[in-house]
């Protein structure tokens, strides 16, 4: 059996890659995709720790999984707003203009 620490370490790697994506990519949608990657890394860590706590006999193991469920809906809400902003910008401009605006320098 793979120890939960390995999963957490993997999630750390994925999370860091996502963070680098946020900092280096320039188009809004790519930044947003990187954020989704970070969220998923966090979910992996949560599930791994849920397993850990269940395995140590603590009663709260399952609540980690439940938190993932809630974070999924948070992500969905964010996606709704984020894509809404992008589309709103798109609607107000000619389609060729979007790239210029969607490029956000951080």
């Amino acid at each position: 059996m793979v120890p939960t620490e390995a999963y957490v370490a993997l999630s750390g790697v994925l999370f860091s890659i996502g963070a680098v994506g946020v900092l280096t990519r320039r188009s809004a949608i790519m930044i947003f995709l990187s954020v989704e990657l970070m969220l998923n890394a966090a979910n992996l860590a949560l599930v791994a720790y849920a397993y850990h706590w269940a395995g140590t006999g603590a009663l709260t193991g399952i609540s980690g999984q439940t938190a993932v469920f809630i974070i999924l809906s948070v992500a969905a809400a964010e996606v709704a707003i984020g894509l809404g902003i992008l589309v709103a910008i798109f609607r107000n401009r000619a389609s060729t203009d979007v790239n210029a605006l969607a490029e956000v320098r951080l």
């Binding site: 957490v8 999630s11 999370f15 996502g18 963070a19 946020v22 809004a28 930044i31 947003f32 954020v35 970070m38 969220l39 890394a41 966090a42 979910n43 860590a45 949560l46 791994a48 720790y49 850990h52 980690g64 938190a67 974070i71 948070v74 964010e78 707003i81 984020g82 902003i85 956000v104 951080l106």
Partner: peptide, 20 residues
């Protein structure tokens, strides 16, 4: 929005580690 989402991701990872 983008930076807010990034911040939320950091925050959520913090939640995961604190839970861990």
């Amino acid at each position: 929005f983008l930076l807010g989402a990034f911040a939320s991701a950091l925050f959520i990872y913090g939640i995961a580690l604190t839970y861990g």
